[in-house]
């Protein structure tokens, strides 16, 4: 019988999915800094027989700009390998024939270029940062209340994140505000939504047990992947906290110091 425990299970893997921020790089004021060993670790995965995909909840920039930003930090990744909430939302909108009112960051608007936005019949919110003004939220609220069946999509549901000048409220807070005001439940697109992980699996044509997710966010990366039947490994970089290792509801299949160590362990199980 095939080994199911980490790291033994790595022998039977066909693909690895990596979270990006906190696994590959850290954001510093005005620049992106690779986490030591991560550039080389990605290159080793790329030259192995494993398929590789990247899965991010980044919604402040389009994938084009994101790839260019990663390049400056030394990563050579193509747009087609990256799964982000905005393009996933576009797929949902197209599939269901929906025309969105957008409340998203200017940096990610170009991902929605192909979508018809006239006479909106749903609202999509992302981490709009400075654009989260009363006026803009009220506009979104009015679109929702004007619909017979109000439909709200949220690109992620994070509470907050750390920036150089302090903590910033994330999209989840504004999602909750609109949910309360309109008495509805938003559909979350992005991690930890099973649909998001499933779209990555579909792209590779693989079954969940053949795929391993590596991330720094215990609930969204590790827990989300596990809910889909994938293995989930947490790295002790990025937003990792020691308390994650005794979390009440999510237990990682393994915890490693960083991506480089994870890749060492995976490749050594494969005799490489």
């Amino acid at each position: 019988m095939a080994e199911t425990k980490w790291p033994g299970c790595a022998g039977g893997l066909k693909a690895v999915v990596l979270d990006m921020c906190g696994v590959l790089y850290d954001s510093e004021p005005g620049r992106t800094v690779a986490i030591p060993g991560s550039v080389e670790a990605v290159n080793r995965l790329m030259s192995s027989d494993l398929q590789l995909r990247f899965c991010t909840n980044e919604t402040q920039s389009s994938r084009d700009k994101f790839v260019a930003m990663l390049q400056t930090a030394g990563f050579d990744i193509s747009v087609s390998q990256i799964f982000a909430p905005a393009p996933a939302a576009v797929a949902v909108l197209n599939e269901r024939g929906l025309r969105p009112h957008l409340l998203v960051h200017d940096g990610v608007l170009s991902e929605f270029d192909s979508v018809d936005k006239t006479d909106p019949n749903c609202v999509v919110i992302g981490d709009a940062a400075e654009k989260f003004s009363y006026q803009n939220l009220n506009d979104a609220f009015r679109v929702l209340t004007g619909l017979e069946k109000p439909l709200l999509f949220s690109l992620g549901q994070g509470r907050y994140y750390k920036e150089t000048n302090g903590l910033s409220l994330d999209v989840g807070v504004y999602m909750k505000a609109l949910e309360y005001a309109c008495d509805l439940k938003a559909e979350v697109i992005g991690k930890p939504s099973p649909r998001f992980f499933q779209s990555v699996l579909n792209d590779m044509g693989l079954q969940p047990h053949e795929v391993l997710m590596i991330g720094d966010d215990l609930v969204n990366d590790v827990g989300g992947a596990q809910n889909c039947g994938m293995k989930g490994i947490q790295v002790r970089t990025g937003k990792y906290r020691p308390s994650d290792e005794k979390h009440l509801t999510v237990t990682a299949d393994g915890t490693v110091d960083n991506l480089s160590q994870a890749v060492d362990m995976i490749l050594s199980q494969r005799g490489g």
Binding site: F141, G172, V173, A177, E179, A181
Partner: peptide, 15 residues
């Protein structure tokens, strides 16, 4: 209609 305080209170509670 315009958003009431409850929306912002709920958001802060969640955060």
């Amino acid at each position: 209609l315009a958003l009431g305080p409850g929306a912002f209170v709920t958001g802060l509670e969640y955060a």
